[in-house]
């Protein structure tokens, strides 16, 4: 049907061309087909996000309907009595991601500064490539390395953390617990390593496009390299840097395999970061195949919906901040 419509639409144009041969007509409908096929496929890609939202909503509806708003604030997660609440996992997701950001943001800033301002030209590309390769390593391998290599090693430091940080008034509560190596803190650290390449790459790119005259004027006034970075480059790229951090946060929130290996998978909240916990992604990964009842499965899919909504908001914010820089660039060019 589409083809015939195309032929009809094309008729007037085709008529002005050679009337006898079918060439122009066929040519124009091929154009029409190609344009619309590619447009249809592009629309399909675009609406798949909406599809995800609808699918997760439908699958998680039973749990959401059954527990109502209490699903969001209840800390109980009991598959036996079929009582499900998401709060433990939401908090676990936010805490592990927060630890990741605390580690990744300053490190990424240092790396970006090194690559864009300090490194000699021959070192720039290898260091960039090495950092980017950190993003290429699959999450399951981070997890395996984290569980079998990093956690036992990190466990050696935990008695020290217990003795020193744990003894502090107030925040000491965060650092008490058995030195197992696995737990919220280890998961956060590994997550931090995993998101460094994403944040560092964006910071590096925007540092590199900071206009040279801006930097040179500061240098000409006698500013040191650090002062240029802190007072010229950073203010100029602030929105994009924030966008990059949000993008890294989006990654951290939804990261699954590495966290599942290391976080310890406890279904309760504990004050200490050294204790095992759970994130939304890790509990879904862990319990999905065990979820035999309908309500249990529905609760896990509702958790997925919550994760999707949180990451969607964070990613939209990130992209909007990054787009503002694009526009700025466009105006300059």
């Amino acid at each position: 049907m589409k083809v015939s419509e195309a032929a009809r639409d094309a008729q007037p144009i085709a008529a002005t061309a050679d009337k006898k041969s079918a060439g122009p007509r066929a040519r124009i409908s091929a154009d029409f087909l190609f344009r619309n096929l590619s447009a249809a496929v592009a629309m399909l890609v675009a609406i798949s996000l909406l599809g995800i939202l609808i699918a997760l909503w439908r699958e998680g509806w039973d749990a959401l309907h059954h527990f109502g708003w209490r699903f969001l604030v209840s800390t109980s997660w009991n598959p036996v009595s079929e009582h499900f609440g998401a709060l433990v996992f939401i908090v676990g997701t936010l805490i592990s991601s927060a630890i990741a950001l605390i580690i990744a943001v300053p490190v990424s800033f240092g790396i970006a500064l090194f690559i864009s301002e300090m490194a000699p030209r021959w070192l720039r590309n290898p260091v960039s490539a090495a950092i980017e390769l950190l993003a290429a390593i699959p999450s399951v391998i981070y997890g395996m390395w984290g569980l079998l290599v990093f956690a036992p090693w990190f466990g050696n430091f935990e008695p020290w953390i217990n003795d020193h940080l744990g003894a502090l008034p107030g925040i000491g509560l965060l650092f008490q617990g058995p030195p197992m190596g696995i737990g919220m803190l280890s998961a956060g650290i590994v997550l931090g390593i995993m998101i460094i390449p994403f944040i560092a790459a964006i910071m590096r790119d925007v540092f590199l496009i900071t206009p040279a005259p801006l930097k040179e004027s500061a240098y000409a006034m006698g500013a040191t390299k650090w002062e240029v970075a802190r007072k010229v480059i950073l203010p100029y790229t602030r929105t994009a840097v924030t966008g990059g951090i949000f993008l890294g946060l989006g990654r951290a929130l939804g990261e699954t395999m590495a966290v599942t290996f290391i976080i310890g998978n406890a279904d309760n909240l504990s004050a200490s970061l050294l204790m095992p916990g759970s994130s939304i992604a890790s509990v879904i990964a862990n319990e999905f195949t065990e979820a035999t009842t309908h309500l249990y499965k529905s609760a896990l899919l509702a958790l997925g919906l919550i994760l999707f909504v949180i990451t969607f908001i964070v990613l939209v914010l990130a992209k909007m901040l990054l787009l503002r820089l694009d526009r700025m660039e466009g105006r300059k060019a």
Partner: peptide, 9 residues
Amino acid sequence: ILLSAPSII
């Protein structure tokens, strides 16, 4: 957005 969406989703 889809590019950065969590793979578990």
